[in-house]
Design a protein around this nucleic acid. Sequence first.
DNA 1: TCTGGGGTCCTAGGACCC
DNA 2: TCTGGGGTCCTAGGACCC
Length: 428
Amino acid sequence: MSCASSESPRRIALVDCNNFYVSCERVFAPQLAHRPVAVLSNNDGCVVARSEEVKALGIAMGTPFHEIRALVKSAGIAVYSSNYALYGDMSARVMQVLAQFTPRVEPYSIDEAFLHFTGWEDARLTEHAQHMVKTVRRWTGIPVSIGIAPSKVLAKVANRVAKQQRLPGGVCQLTDPALHPAILAQMPVGELWGIGKRWTQRLQALDIHTAQQLRDSDPSQLRARFGVVMQRLIYELRGVSCLDTEALTPPKQQLIASRSFGRPVTELTALQEAVASHVARAGVKLRRQGSVTQALVVFIQTNRFKQEAFPYHQAVTLRLPAPTADTGKLIGYAVMGVKALYRAGLRYKKAGVMLLNLAPAQQIQLDLLHPGDDERSRRRMQVVDQLNAKMGNGTLRFAREGWQQPWQMRQAKRSPAYTTKWEELPRV
DNA sequence: TCTGGGGTCCTAGGACCC
DNA sequence: TCTGGGGTCCTAGGACCC
C-alpha cells in the first residue's frame, strides 16, 4: 500500500455546496428563502435534495414522493422536478470561482470539490476559506461549507462538522491532530465517507461503533476482513493521506444512459425509440470526452417494486466489430438488442444502455476488415453535436428516437433553464 | 397511481499460457 | 503409476459514492 510519505503534511479542503439543488432553485426564486423546499429525482420519483426546513420535518433523503404528498400539502413544501440544465451550469460557475483561489481544484461531484493547499501556513487557512465561502456566495448565490484537514476522509469529517455546528463563516479546520479524537469519538462509524450500510453492520459486529474506534483498530487485521479500501480509510483517519489527489479528471471508462418511463410501455417500437434516445445521449457524452466504444449493453425491465406476474430484468451485451462513436451505428445495434430482449405482453418500466471498454478515439487499433468511423461519420456527428449545442438538445435527432415520445419521464414541476436558454431567462 | 440515474474500485475465480 | 507452479487477463459481483 502506498500512502503519502511526509514532505510537508497535506492540506486538503473539501468544498461542499449546502443543499445544492435547493440552493440553485432559491437563487432564481428568492421568495423560497426560509421556506421548506424539496427537489425530486428524475421522473419525479424520490426526494433527492432538501432544505433545512424539510430536513427538520423528518423527511429522509430518498423518500418516495408519493409517501409524503399529504405532508407536502399541510406543511406547504415547495416541490421541484430536477433541472439538470440549471444545476450543471451553476456547478460550473462555482468551480470556476474556486479555481481563483488555488490552481489545484479536483471536482468530485456536481456539488463538491477537493482543493489542495499543501504548503500553506495553517494559521491563514481558516481565514482564506472563509473568504472563499463569501466570494462563492456573492458571485453565484450558492452557500457552501468547507472542511480542511490532512486527508480527504478527515476533510469530509471537517466539512460535516462545519455544517452541523454552523461554524462561523461555514469553515472547520481540523489540521491540528489534537482536535481529532474528541470529534471522531462523537461520530458514528456509518457516517464516515466510504462506510456504507453493509460495512456498518459488519463493523458493529466487531464492536466498532465510532470513527475513533475505527481509527484505533488494527489496519492489517481489518484489511484481512474488508480489503485494502478499509485499510486506507483507517490511515486516512489517522491523518495519513492515502487517496489519490489527481488534479485532472481522467476520461470515463464506461457511460450509462437510462430512464424510467413516465408510464408503462408495452410496444416494441416504443421501447426501441426510448433506447435509441438513450443511445443518443450516451453518444454525446462519448464524443465530448473524445472516446470510442467497443461494447454496448442494452437492458429493459419491468417495475421492480410491483408484484408483476412476470418480473423481467434482462440485458444483452453486444461486442462491436469495430470501435465507434457514431450514434447512428450504435442505434442500429441497440434496436437489434431490444428486439432480442423484448417479450410481448409485459409492462416495461425502464430501459437503458451502457457503453463499455471506452478508449481514446486517437489510439484505437486499426482493423483492415472492420474499419472504424470514417471521416464522413465524424463530420456528421460533429454537425449534429454542434447544432444541438447551439440550438438546444433534440433540435436534430435520429428518426429512431421517435417524435411524440409518450414514454418520456414525468417532470411536472421543473423550473425554467434560467441560465442556459434564451427563452427562459429570468425577468426582473 | 406513485419508488432516480450515473459512476468507481476491488476481489475472487476461471481460462489460458509457459 | 503419474498429474507443478506461477503469471496474466478477463469477467462477474460486491461494496461504495453523490
